[in-house]
């Protein structure tokens, strides 16, 4: 067998650079601003847009079938309960920052937050 190294000094250097870059990327994405509203998408369609300033709990039903209970409180949103098997959406917990999301693959539900600035005047006035 040709003699190949397991780890060389250059490898460690490259890995450190990659690692530092990734940590920087992660830090930048988490330290973003608070979100104003959350968009709930069920089966690729916008199901509901909720403002995060209010406090409420509601159920998501799709074609008469109960899928998920969503709770909004203190500018954050979470999936309180879900009918899916492994409850990844519930374990995600509260999300409040802009650009975060809760994804439930078995139920085809995506909840994502949007920034403080409204997309258009119409959206603002209807809320």
């Amino acid at each position: 067998m040709k003699n190949r190294n397991v780890v060389t000094k250059r490898d460690i250097l490259i890995l450190l650079v990659i690692f530092a870059g990734l940590i920087g990327w992660a830090v930048i994405t988490t330290h973003s601003k608070k979100a104003a509203k959350a968009v709930i998408i069920v089966h690729s369609k916008v199901y509901k847009v909720v403002s995060l300033n209010e406090e409420k709990t509601f159920k998501i039903n799709w074609k008469g079938k109960y899928l998920m209970t969503v709770q909004v409180k203190n500018g954050a949103i979470r999936a309180k309960n879900s009918t899916c098997k492994n409850k990844i959406c519930v374990h995600t917990g509260w999300i409040s920052k802009d650009g975060q999301s809760i994804v439930c693959v078995p139920n085809h539900i995506i909840i994502y937050t949007e920034g403080a600035k409204p997309a258009s005047c119409d959206l603002m006035t209807t809320q």
Binding site: L22, A26, T29, Q100, S101, V105
Partner: peptide
């Protein structure tokens, strides 16, 4: 592929963390 399955690009927010664990 995950973004194709749930048809949303929001899942890309997890990419940096996944890459750290991938390293």
């Amino acid at each position: 592929i995950g973004a194709q399955i749930v048809s949303s690009w929001m899942i890309f927010g997890y990419l940096p963390y996944m890459e750290i664990l991938g390293v």
